[in-house]
């Protein structure tokens, strides 16, 4: 059986290199037959694509997509650099 560290590395590489995602900052953790995705993306469709690519790369694992969608809020307070 392939060590989970190598599977996680392969999934992370797929998320970065797959033309549908190209997402570099996603953390991939594997515990037993469970795969966890964590990180932040800018839209819910990108989150779903990441889950799909992870599933295709490691179809034997149950994918938990815990990625957050971050929506930029209104600009806040100015910073004065003096």
């Amino acid at each position: 059986m392939e060590a989970p560290q190598y599977v996680a590395a392969r999934v992370q590489q797929a998320l970065a290199e797959d033309g549908r995602t190209h997402e570099l900052g996603i953390r991939v953790d594997i515990r037993g037959d469970q795969l966890f995705l964590r990180g932040q993306v800018s839209g819910s469709e990108q989150r779903e694509r990441l889950g799909q690519v992870a599933h295709e790369t490691a179809p034997e694992l149950h994918v938990h997509n815990e990625i957050n969608v971050v929506e930029a809020t209104e600009p806040g307070e100015d910073e004065h650099l003096d």
């Binding site: 900052g25 932040q40 930029a72 809020t73 209104e74 600009p75 100015d78 910073e79 650099l81």
Partner: peptide, 15 residues
């Protein structure tokens, strides 16, 4: 970086 700011943009004022 947008995920660091968490807001649409920052504003920096140079005197």
């Amino acid at each position: 970086a947008l995920p660091v700011l968490g807001r649409a943009y920052a504003v920096y004022c140079l005197t």
